[in-house]
Design a binder for these strands. Structure first.
Lengths: 208, 208
DNA sequence: TAAAAAATTGACCATTTGGAAAAATATGAA
DNA sequence: TTCATATTTTTCCAAATGGTCAATTTTTTA
């Protein structure tokens, strides 16, 4: 029977659960939920299918675990925006952190994108709860900055959407980006180039 | 055996092929390729599975047909950018057209996003060919505008990426957008609001 | 070190799914 | 109306896949 407790008891449990989750992230983010098989994940984790199912009740549970973890990671950078900091610095810092995430955690980004694309069946409640609450809170901060004349007027919610979209694009649409940039400009520098473009562009757009 | 010719011969063939493609777009964009079954598509098209397979050799062929059509539709708005027009008008016009597409053709947008997300296995060649060629061409136009001092300096490729990202976001991440905006602001007006935000924001960012 | 608990595996099964074949029915041209 | 062709349905099958179970092996504990 599959392990049920939240906290792994043994060393082996801790290690193998991690190996499974890492493998699952790889497979799920590449092929989507339905496009991934337990066998694939087990192989990527270097174990047999029944052995994997000793650690997780079923495929759904692996996916759910990944999604739950992901949301925390995903919201962290926005959380860090400080209402007492310099608006421009805060926003460009946020952009840089988000670009870093697209570079360093593309699998997580794609897993999230896939979930959104298919209607967020496992995430909707949290989107309407935690996420909305956080965004509303930060939108208020931005609104205050606008009222204080520190940045130019704009809709804070759509501003946040646009930052999400532009930064995550470099992970989610990576193939397209590399195809268009070609071999010369499509190397690792593309993230740096993107960050530079976005930071100066948002700076210009928000300068009061 | 399945119909092979490109041009449907009979009225029934033309009608049913369309019905199948429309149903397939619905199902594929909702569930992804692997997540969709021929049975689902057939049901959505109001016919039996074997009957559907009379018109298309297999599931792959339906998908491929959709993707092929999609690319043309997808590139059309960028194609329309006129190097002799007013730069600001051209770019805001492009943004508006892209937002319109997210509003009116969300299924197409999601089908495309799904394809990109999973490495564009069926599209890569065209991305590196037609798409790159088109983008390079328009990037040159933008560069000329910059040199003529008509818009401020920026990387045209990343500018185009950012327009793609921000506009398509409203189709691909629709659940998230609606969840965050809530019932009051998440209605149909969200596209109008997005368009307004983006147009003024890009205007500011590109003003020389 | 021996028993208990944890971890792993091989064999197996039911269901779903993509797809084929052939027979039956509808449609349209002569 | 008749015949050829186009369309549709019924039946079926093989492979893939999610998941179970009992037996075996490994690890930990007393």
């Amino acid at each position: 029977m599959a392990i049920v407790q939240t906290k792994p008891k043994t060393r082996i449990q801790a290690e193998n659960s991690e190996r499974i989750l890492d493998a699952a992230l790889e497979i799920f983010s590449e092929n989507g939920f339905r496009g991934s098989t337990i066998d694939q994940i087990a192989a990527a984790a270097g174990m047999s299918k029944p052995n994997l199912l000793y650690y997780f009740k079923n495929k759904e549970e692996i996916h759910q675990t990944l999604i739950d973890r992901l949301l925390k990671i995903w919201l962290a950078p926005l959380e860090k925006i400080d209402e007492n900091g310099d608006p421009m610095t805060e926003i460009t810092g946020y952009i840089r952190r988000k670009i870093e995430m697209s570079k360093d955690l593309p699998r997580e980004s794609r897993l999230f994108a896939n979930e959104m694309l298919h209607g967020a069946p496992r995430t909707l409640a949290k989107l309407e709860g935690d996420l909305k609450e956080l965004v509303d809170r930060k939108a208020e901060v931005i609104n205050r900055w606008i009222q204080d004349g520190k940045i130019s007027e704009c809709d804070p919610w759509h501003l946040i959407f646009s930052i999400w979209a532009t930064t995550q694009h470099y992970a989610d649409f990576d193939v397209q980006v590399r195809a268009v940039l070609g071999p010369e400009r499509g190397g690792e520098s593309r993230f740096q180039d993107a960050a530079e473009f976005l930071e100066t562009f948002y700076l210009r757009g928000l300068k009061p």
